[in-house]
Write a protein that binds this DNA or RNA. Structure first.
Lengths: 348, 348
DNA sequence: AGAAAAAACTGTAACGATTACGCAAATCAG
DNA sequence: CTGATTTGCGTAATCGTTACAGTTTTTTCT
């Protein structure tokens, strides 16, 4: 069994007949070492498979070389955000490329503040990414107090102070989606939104309402719902709306799953998707919920969560490297891609 | 801004007029310290809000107090396992309760071996959990070589050496599901399986085939598919099978998503789920893909991935605490829960 | 009372890197 | 050819903790 202790700096230095200092400097790219020696050292390091001990680096430098992701789990519903996995995949790619580790904590949503304090005082991370931002999110003030670098995925409407964020232009995405349906002649357009304590859901509703306002259509409360973004709740909402006296001819749905529920309700009424009733979804490009293979099934406003993860991670690393630079922001635009779920409004 | 350096051991010892050693011993519950002194120390530690520096502990003890989860991302398809999030949530709970951190690496599936070596030689983790086990999984031998404690989620059929695992009795779950359908009078039963390079998918097929064999029914290749467990591929498989000359009257589907696809195909043919065609799914109880609220929609064999995560984490921590104990195993049984998607086979 | 044993505490090295500082040898300026 | 500068490397301190080995004080026993 290969239980031999891994090669360390001192041993490697001995084998090279050099001091640990020189070896360390050579490997970390310091200038005061001869090129010939450096090459010899680098070669030996590779040959003996030397990797500096993370624990020692951390103690010596005071940096954790790690980034924290704290995931709130709603104490009651126990629902985890489904975009989680793909966001992590994107961010993890960046961390790996920069020699950072990714630390994950899953905590009850009422214990988040404590989780951040703990990460900070233990010196376990150099910065954190904040997920699932709510309208008035107390975590932002909390982290600013702690002096821990952070980037949020999504903005918080209710917060005035400046902070670093990455977000999709949710308002604009839903504005465009709704306008697209209006252009196709629809006027009874329903909104199947996510829970509106989430900030992005608020912005999406604003986009939808603004688009209607642009055509002087008053939003009809009976055509707007807000709930978990699951298939079942999409189905129920759409079923209810389709049995109204004056049913919608089009839906804007907040996610792939919601959209699938809406589709089922439509087909359950014997109606045809894209002919009798149109649907646009917001597509996060989740890896296990693809919107078709080649041809998209749903017309969608599309923005990759994985990309957002990459961008947020890059931003955070930049912030860690130089905390003095002002807060950074990045607003991503969603593409509007045409699928088979939309068509002109049917004539009366 | 709270940027003052936190209290450390030396400082605390000075304030108490004691040596760092005594303070450390007192706080870590060693016996050789006077009760009076100990109380004095504990009180001071609380008063000055002293928390031992994690980085120093790790270097001094040689333990990382962290567990690694390495997630392979298929280089081509870029699909991440959808059960990921819930498994992590379960495992994370256990780590948090035991003072361990959870380290996540997302790596291309051809770079996994390197990722393990890296974690080991850097001393970044004390053990790892292996996800998405394949039939002949090289990672197991690889980890045994490294001498890094590990627990797999799922077993590898092709490996003879013993190792620690947590698994669901997939064969039995699919055996029972199929038998249940047979008992209802169905004889044309289709299998919509996951990709059969995954070990669990093989076991599921075996269960299905064995159940048929028990009633002397030869499995029909036209009624068995194996593909990604997505809604779309479930839909396509079911649609194709339903248009056979002698179509199935029942389906066994490998996941909630596949099942949703199958349902859509059934309803698309104007058939009614649970009356004309029956469906049983395997339900991992994913938090964002609930099988109904109160009443299950699908009849299902159910086993919580989150529980599996908890159990695997506990097992790994036990293994880290005492690596000499032989490999541990835990086979979880799935419940068969009755929903609205199954009924007696329709008469010809 | 005196020796042995137990209790309570202290000092010194690790742990494995980084890094400030120091010092020769080689190079350069005049 | 001498003094100053640069190059290249080594010594030792440091990070905050635990492990190990002493040392002192107190208790116990005969």
């Amino acid at each position: 069994m290969g239980t031999q202790t891994p090669m360390n700096l001192k041993e490697l230095a001995q084998k090279l007949n050099l001091s640990p200092t020189t070896v360390s400097r050579a490997l970390n790219g310091y200038p005061e070492v001869n090129d010939v020696t450096r090459e010899r050292i680098v070669a030996a390091a590779k040959r003996y498979n030397y990797r500096p001990n993370t624990r020692a680096i951390r103690l010596a430098t005071g940096r954790a070389m790690a980034v924290g992701h704290v995931f709130p789990v709603a104490t009651k519903s126990e629902i985890m955000n489904p975009i989680f996995a793909d966001f992590i995949a994107g961010a993890g790619e960046i961390y790996a490329a920069n020699g950072y580790d990714m630390l994950l904590s899953v905590v009850a949503d009422d214990a988040e503040a404590a989780a951040y304090r703990d990460l900070k005082s233990r010196g376990a991370v150099d910065g954190v990414i904040v997920h699932a931002v709510r309208t008035y999110d107390p975590r932002i003030a909390s982290l600013q107090d702690l002096g821990l670098p952070f980037v949020t995925h999504g903005r918080a409407t209710g917060i005035e102070t400046d902070y670093s964020w990455v977000d999709v232009n949710n308002r604009r995405a839903f504005l465009r989606a709704t306008e697209f349906l209006l252009d196709l002649g629809h006027s009874r357009i329903a909104l199947v939104n996510g829970k509106e304590d989430m900030d992005f859901a608020i912005r999406r509703r604003t986009g939808y309402v603004d688009a209607l306002a642009g055509r002087e259509i008053a939003p009809d409360p009976a055509l707007m719902t807000s709930d978990e973004m699951t298939e079942l709740s999409g189905y129920r909402a759409a079923k209810r709306m389709l049995s109204l006296e004056n049913p919608p001819t089009a839906f804007v749905a907040a996610s792939m799953l919601s959209g699938m529920g809406v589709r089922r309700a439509i087909e359950g009424q014997g109606l045809k998707l894209g002919r009798d009733v149109s649907v646009i979804i917001f597509d996060d490009e989740l890896s296990y919920l693809r919107n078709g293979d080649d041809v998209p099934i749903f017309t969608a406003t599309r923005s990759s969560v994985r990309d957002a993860g990459r961008i947020a991670a890059e931003m955070l690393l930049a912030l860690i490297a130089d905390p003095t630079q002002g807060p950074l922001h990045r607003l991503l635009e969603a593409d509007l891609i045409l699928g088979q779920s939309t068509g002109p409004a049917p004539r009366k």
